[in-house]
């Protein structure tokens, strides 16, 4: 894609990423990765890393809105932040050395199982 159309596509995808990330409190990065590696020609590992750069300000804006609505409870937020930050550092160090396909297969299975469980009442 070229010039104006590429930017328009990027902006529309940005809107979709924003709505999903705000509505579901996450998952925007999952939309950003194929966009970066597909339409914007990023190499795969760079697409994964750059997706984090895109989602950080988006999550910050969403987080402020959730705090205002009164949904941020410290007894959940604090341990979640501690665990996620430690795990994130390890994951980032591993990204350069792991076979992505194996990680993805496990990830897809976990998402499917969780999705089906959540659809049930």
């Amino acid at each position: 894609m070229k010039g104006f159309y590429r930017e328009l596509a990027a902006m529309l995808s940005g809107a979709a990423i924003g709505i999903a990330n705000g509505l579901f409190g996450g998952g925007g990065g999952m939309i950003a990765v194929p966009l970066l590696s597909g339409a914007m020609n990023y190499e795969e590992k760079a697409a994964h890393a750059t997706a984090i750069l895109i989602i950080a300000p988006v999550s910050l804006a969403g987080a402020v809105a959730y705090i205002i609505s009164g949904f941020a409870l410290p007894y959940v937020v604090i341990p979640a932040a501690v665990g996620m930050t430690a795990g994130g550092a390890v994951g980032a160090l591993l990204l350069n050395g792991l076979p992505l396909a194996a990680v993805k297969a496990i990830f897809v299975a976990a998402m499917l199982a969780a999705g089906i469980r959540m659809l049930m009442p």
Partner: peptide, 28 residues
């Protein structure tokens, strides 16, 4: 919660949706 978040963070740090794992883990 710390253990569940650590596992989610592993994926998140690789840029593949840590939140999509953490949120269902917390609710389920």
């Amino acid at each position: 919660i710390i253990l569940l978040s650590f596992s989610a963070g592993l994926l998140g740090g690789m840029g593949m949706g840590g939140g999509t794992i953490l949120i269902p883990a917390l609710t389920i």
